[in-house]
Design a protein around this nucleic acid. Structure first.
Lengths: 194, 194
DNA sequence: CTATTTCATTGATTTAAATCAACAGCATTT
DNA sequence: AAATGCTGTTGATTTAAATCAATGAAATAG
């Protein structure tokens, strides 16, 4: 239930067996069925989750009930409403399992304790957030500066596993488009290729 | 020339006078005149900069020569093409002084050395990147889920000093809009208010 | 196995934003 | 003071995407 996470700690921040034994105590295993929520709008985000298995999405709802997907998380990724998690303010997001999931959770209190007592954990977290930042920056760049077809092509190049695994209307939502528009973009690309 | 940076290190990560004396050696003061570049497309981003004074922008150019502003940086902020800085790959961005600037720079080598030798520096960096991540997430959320007028209103709320200090066509670029469209959005908001 | 959601595509129409073009106000330079 | 460049606005037109509506295919539940 912890394999992937422990392996990643080893690879990314040089955790040894003693470190792993220590850190394991702070994480809580949790299973989630498809369509269950890890977080609902209006609640405080009490946990940060590492995905051992499955896939989730973080999204907000607009006044008309439209979904806007801000993030996907698959195996090996962390997911939380980081702002709510860190500040304790209520969240405006939802986190929902798109498939049956196995997660390991940590509370804010444990997280803070580890940051203080375990420099390797702080290093791991710094590297994680840096990668998340760089990934989001790429996404933002493509949104403000590239035509739609290129944006979709890039998404396919950077995250083929996501595009394959997730329904298209969710990809559309992630790109800030309607499903119809994405469908037409795909048709255009397919035609151009031939 | 280092005042603001040192003060921020103290406040954010608990640096004491000894720490400050140590860290000062690693940073290089640098002045930049308006319109000078800290980084040009095709070069490697050799420095990460802290802004003591002035204002800069990080932007990319599309095939038609259109500018797309990914980030502003004013006093108290860091700026770099982080990806290029960390990986050593050539950058696709430009960083230009919008006003005369005073910066303090650090090289990748010094940055790595500090991360290894000075836990407080790593803490400071983790907190900085976390804040940058949260800010970008807010921006991305507003892009994919809010109508234009709300997006502009939010920008005004979150960063009034930027909106006031920077020419409107650059705000438009930052929002991914043409200057004409932003002008019309502003007119609409002004009319609605009355 | 059948019923029912969920999902993707396509067409017609409306709406929003980009583009093209002109102009006026400032600031800076010389 | 004349000239130049930068800036923001407005109008007319084109273009891109959203919306509205219908359909068919695939997946899932009963």
């Amino acid at each position: 239930m912890y394999e992937l996470f422990l392996q990643k700690l080893k690879e990314t921040a040089g955790f040894d067996e003693t470190d792993l034994a220590t850190i394991k105590k702070f994480f809580i295993p949790k299973k989630l069925r498809k369509k269950q929520y890890l977080l609902q709008e209006g609640d405080v985000c009490k946990f940060s989750a590492f995905v051992e298995k499955g896939a989730l999405r973080l999204y907000s709802l607009d006044d008309k009930g439209g979904e806007h997907i801000l993030q996907f998380a698959m195996e090996g990724w962390h997911i939380a409403d980081l702002y709510s998690f860190l500040t304790g303010e209520t969240s405006t997001y939802n986190i929902e399992a798109m498939e049956d999931c196995e997660l390991v959770l940590i509370t804010k209190q444990s997280h803070d304790e580890l940051l203080d007592k375990m420099p390797k954990y702080e290093r791991y977290m710094r590297l994680q957030i840096t990668n998340a930042y760089l990934a989001m920056q790429r996404r933002l760049t493509s949104i403000i500066s590239m035509p739609l077809d290129e944006r979709y092509a890039n998404l396919n190049k950077d995250y083929p596993h996501i595009v394959q695994r997730v329904p298209q209307h969710m990809i559309a939502s992630y790109m800030g488009l309607t499903p119809e528009t994405l469908s037409r973009v795909r048709r255009k690309i397919a035609e151009a290729k031939k």
